[in-house]
Every structure is written in C-alpha cells, then in structure tokens.
C-alpha cells in the first residue's frame, strides 16, 4: 500500500470515529430534549412533585439542586483553592507531595456510589446530620474536591514563571506574588474549572441518594429563616435533587405521568448542564480577553 493511500484511509477512519462520537452525543441530546421539551412550562418548573396523581412538577427538586450546588461550592472551593495553591506554589518536590497528589488521584477515581455510602455512614449516621442538604453537600465535596483541586492546580501551573519572577523581583513576598499576580492571572481558567465542576455536581445522583435523601418535603418560599424546617434555606432538611428525582421516578415512580415527568426533568437537567458548559467557555473567554485584551 502506498503512503498516499494509507494516509487517506487513516484520515477517513479518524473522521469516522470523531463523527461517531458527535453522533452519539447528538442522538442522546436530541432524544432527551425532544421527548422532554413538551413538558417544559412554568407550571412544571415551579410546582412541587405529586406522588400519586398526574400533573406534578419539579419545582422543589430544581431549587434543591441549585441550593445543594451552592453549598457544595461554598465548602469545596476554598479548600480546593488552598490545596491547589499549596501544591503548585509551595509544595516541595518530595515524597510527601507525591503522596498528596496520589491521594487526590485516587479520591477522584472513587465511584460516586461508594462516596455516597461513606457520606451516609459519616455524616448521616455518625455526625447525626440525618438525610439533609448538609450531608449531601459534604459528600459532594469529597466527590468534587479532587477534580477541582486538580483543575485549580493546572490553572496556576499555566501561568508563566516569568510572572512569579517579576513579582519577586519587584520586592513582593511569595504570598503577595501569589495573591496579587498569579491568582488574578489564573482567574479566567479557575472560573471555567469551577463552572465545569458545577455541571458535574448538578448532575450527580448516586452520591446523594444516601446523603441528601430521596424526599422533597414541601417548602414555604416566603419563609427565608434558615432555622425553620419548611424554609428553603434550611440546610438540615432532606432534599431530593433533580437527578435523584429522575432516578427515583424511573425505579419506583407510581404517578400516572411518571414517564412524562421523567422526560421533562431529564431535559431540564441536561439543558442546565449544557448551559453550565457554554457559560464556562463564554465567561472564561471573556475574562481572558478583558485581562489580556487578546483578540
């Protein structure tokens, strides 16, 4: 076979593989959105779910998903930021650092259902948080921390060493160099990483089934005192999220319109995750342009 022909065949095969991947994604998205889209209206997005009759919505589950996401990020972002800064800027290149890096890698490859069961034992049972948003947020922190740490570490590593030298040579301390130069420079890419991780948190179900629970008690959206049990802000209430809701309807849903609700909820979930991804690209790009005035 001559090189020209083999090149052509390789080209064709690679295009074929790439096209196949895109096709799978397009088919999945298309199916979910087309079957779910007819369900989407204001009523569906805002009313509570119904267990036995048709016409229920996903209002509370949707709110729970966002609230859980917010709490998880509030807990995991500062820790991941600290860990990322330590690993990239301060950690000496020795066996301790290697152990930390390996630990992060292993943590990130733990199956989420195992993380969920572990969260159940520690937070729900041992710490007596019960099935609650807080238990769920801690479990998701375990799940999210390694990936976010890695992404922040990579964002920092992408900043050229000449910037660090510039700061130090100007008489800045190491901490000032990190906080005043490196972090602002890495901000667009850190933000992109946070939003992408938000998409993963938003869609996570297995780790939440045993921690945040599978029930969504009615909420009083006029009561914003986080200590009241019916307040949306109460972190100690059980909170079924959208992803858990989908799993639950499909495994034990007995409402007559279970299939339609499931399709609608899936569409909302997928669209939300898509929006996170697009937002991540858009905001990251815009921030970077603003910072560098690169066109």
């Amino acid at each position: 076979m001559n090189p020209k022909l083999s090149n052509k065949i390789a080209n064709g095969a690679l295009y074929g593989i790439a096209g196949f991947i895109v096709l799978i994604l397009a088919a999945l998205l298309g199916y979910i959105i087309i079957t779910g889209l007819p369900m989407l209206n204001w009523h569906f997005l805002t009313t509570p779910a119904r267990a036995f009759t048709a016409g229920g919505g996903i209002g509370i589950q949707l709110f729970n998903s966002f609230y859980l996401l917010l709490l998880t990020l509030l807990i995991s972002f500062p820790i991941a930021l600290g860990a990322g800064i330590y690993l990239n800027e301060y950690a000496p290149n020795n066996w301790v650092t290697n152990v930390v890096r390996t630990a992060i890698e292993i943590l990130s490859s733990l199956p989420s259902v195992v993380v969920g069961l572990f969260g159940f034992l520690i937070f729900v049972v041992q710490f007596d948080f019960g099935f609650s948003i807080l238990s769920g947020a801690f479990a998701l922190t375990f799940f999210n921390l390694p990936l976010l740490t890695r992404s922040i570490e990579e964002s920092l590593a992408a900043i050229s060493n000449t910037q660090r030298e510039g700061g130090l040579a100007l008489g800045l301390s190491k901490w000032e160099t990190v906080t005043r130069i490196i972090l602002p420079a890495a901000l667009p890419s850190i933000l992109t990483g946070v939003i992408l991780s938000a998409g993963r948190i938003f869609g996570e179900a297995a780790a939440l089934i045993f921690t945040a629970g599978q029930s969504a008690p009615a909420l009083d959206f006029t009561d914003w005192n986080p200590f009241n049990i019916s307040s949306p802000l109460n972190p100690m209430r059980p909170a079924e999220t959208l992803a858990v809701h989908i799993w639950k309807i499909n495994s034990e849903g007995i409402m007559p319109d279970a299939k339609a609700v499931s399709s609608g909820a899936s569409a909302v979930l997928v669209i939300s995750v898509l929006v996170f991804n697009i937002l991540a690209r858009f905001i990251g790009k815009r921030l970077y342009q603003k910072l560098t005035s690169a066109k």
């Binding site: 050229s160 510039g166 040579a169 100007l170 008489g171 000032e176 005043r180």
Partner: peptide, 30 residues
C-alpha cells in the same frame, strides 16, 4: 526591601496581565 533597592528586568518582557497604569503603580500600591 533589598529587591526594592535592586530591581530586575528579565529577558522575556513580563508585564502583569493588568493595565499599563496598574503595572507601573504595582510596587507602590503594594
């Protein structure tokens, strides 16, 4: 304090990713 007295310019221009003004005012602001 020493590095404020003995400044350094590098081979690769390394302005910080801020405005011209903020770059030059950086040391004083710190």
């Amino acid at each position: 304090a020493l590095r404020k007295q003995i400044g350094m310019v590098f081979q690769q221009p390394n302005p910080f990713p801020f405005s011209v003004y903020d770059n030059v005012a950086f040391g004083l602001r710190i």
